[in-house]
Amino acid sequence: MKGKAFFIDTTLCTACKGCQVACKQWHQLPAEKTVNRGSFQNPEDLSFSTYKLVRMEEVVVDGKLKWLYFPDQCRHCLEPPCRDMAGDKDAVYKDEKTGAVIYTAATKGLAPEDLECPYNIPRKGEKGLLAKCDMCIDRVYNGQLPACVKTCPAGAMNFGDFDEMLDMAKKRLAVVKKTNPNASLLDPEMVRVIYLVAEAPLLYHQFSVAGLRRPGMTRAAALRKLTDPFTRAVASV
């Protein structure tokens, strides 16, 4: 597979949120006015000015407390449903060289729901535009790592050629599986942001794996949307 990919090893993440701040800094995104909602996670959700968010969940697995961290961002799907659903090839396009899925000013007027993102990523701004992670494509074209990867001190964020990242993810999974039999890679063959998780994926985040916000849509249907060209074609009509 050509193009680039991230490998996000959540088993190494320490929720330092360095990626969150680096993303805002590189993109010069404004801070949101937040409150403490009784959680270390802030802001509460992704937004038009927050492309990257470390989600934090406290769960008990087999009687043992776990604090799970999930640095959420656009997955840059190999066959992005949002591109197909946008209906305007200028609104959402896939960069040929990197595979980055890019939103443009032509997203004005589109609703996030229209794009049927299986990972619930796009967010609408005040002026009607949609925004999300752009893979720091300007940095990548200039030989630099995405800002979030560059800043990560824990070794959780990795970036490189797709095959190299997938290989790294599979090797790391084999190691983690020895101590965490529930460990898995999330939708590794369909996205350019490959997560390794140690526990059941939905413990981390409702949209950690492909799902659909539309009522009645199952994960199976959502996956079909990611993989099946016919479904995509129908959907884009």
């Binding site: 805002k24 801070a31 006015k33 409150v35 403490n36 009784g38 802030n42």
Partner: peptide
């Protein structure tokens, strides 16, 4: 950007203590 991440003074406590005092999270 940093205030956004951690905007307010907080006190961490157990669920048991919150129940004892009738506090809700947040």
């Amino acid at each position: 950007w940093l205030l956004e991440l951690q905007p307010q003074m907080f006190v961490e406590m157990s669920e048991q203590l919150a129940e004892l005092r009738g506090f809700k999270n947040g």
